[in-house]
Design a protein around this nucleic acid. Structure first.
Lengths: 192, 192
DNA sequence: TAAATTTGTTCACTTAAGTTAAGAAATGCG
DNA sequence: CGCATTTCTTAACTTAAGTGAACAAATTTA
């Protein structure tokens, strides 16, 4: 399982066996059950997550209603905003499926930066990549209708449609579950 | 004018006079007229922009229609996605107003990283901040209706409503200009 | 396994955004 | 300055999403 982590890291920097062992010594691997809440609204946490297997989701509760804004699956990293500026979280993070992930506090990151300066390089590249990816995602969302967003999701993350409940998907697409049902029926209709 | 740049930088790292002069020697300040197109779709450019005064906007042209997805004003930085992965741009960048900005190629950035390693620190912090800010923006956009988005824009970037044409604002809010007009009329209605 | 809960779909109705078109207001330019 | 273009608003009509409710199906759990 840890191979997934090192495969990921090796895309950015190379590590010696000693360095790998050093990292493993931190005991950052966690196996969490479906439904487990990793982060609650109002909570101050410094934990960052990296998904090795499974799926976690980020959601707000507005007027008692869940609003899912992101899913993180294999090889996705989630650094909650509260971990960066040490403020209470304004959203929840929970497991959509049984999930294996690494949990590391930002302090551990700083420790690693001191010991292995090359980690800084990886983090800089990662956040730059992430900025670019997020911008594109946001732009696409803005310039598309819900139907276009759904069709594009089928292309880009077909797995999500299988593994995530419809009502969470709907919210992720910026609409209500009923609208997603209707929209799907409409698409099937059009095909014939 | 360059003070704005150094004030900004000083929030992250401190520079000696010599270092400042070194930076100034690169001649990166540009004064551009309203309407000037800085980046075109299909173009490969390595330029990054930092707005000192004025406003630039990023937009796509889809089926002959402009779709504005972002505005950059004083102290905002825009690193076009094409500058990062050296691919043709899929959007345009143009000046909403007469604008003073710095234009620096990513190569210059790399040169600066080599000469002043502390620049790396600034860039890492900047991109991390940007990732966080973008995530919040995206989340807010997703969980809000066009009307809520408009009301929140009035709170958060009231200047934009004054300085940017309505039809560009509409597109930025994810709706058509006619809908923005109607929505505004509706809000005034409600107040009474 | 049976009951309870969660999840997904359908329907009728309401609300708001998209579309097309027309005209007024503001801006730019010769 | 005056004409042309761009920008903004309004209106009537269409389309799609929101809402509330009912029901079926799937999943959880006691």
């Amino acid at each position: 399982m840890q191979d997934i982590l090192f495969d990921f890291i090796s895309k950015y920097i190379s590590l010696t066996e000693d360095e790998k062992n050093e990292i493993l010594s931190f005991d950052i691997f966690r196996s969490v059950k479906k439904g487990t809440i990793l982060l609650k609204e109002g909570q101050k946490s410094k934990d960052e997550y990296f998904v090795l297997k499974g799926c976690i989701r980020k959601y707000y509760i507005i007027d008692g209603e869940e609003k899912t804004t992101a899913f993180f699956t294999e090889m996705d990293a989630l650094t909650p905003h509260c971990a960066i500026n040490n403020t209470p979280s304004d959203y929840f993070v929970s497991c959509v499926e049984d999930t294996i992930l690494t949990v590391a506090s930002t302090d551990l990151g700083i420790e690693l930066f001191a010991k292995f300066p090359k980690f800084q390089d990886m983090c800089r590249i990662l956040s730059e990549e992430l900025v670019a990816k997020q911008q594109i995602n946001f732009d696409e969302f803005k310039i598309s209708s819900p139907e276009q967003r759904y069709l594009s999701l089928i292309q880009k993350r077909p797995d999500l449609i299988q593994r995530v409940p419809q009502h969470q998907l709907a919210s992720f697409l910026g609409i209500k579950p009923q609208s997603l049902s209707r929209l799907r029926a409409r698409i099937v209709e059009k095909k014939n």
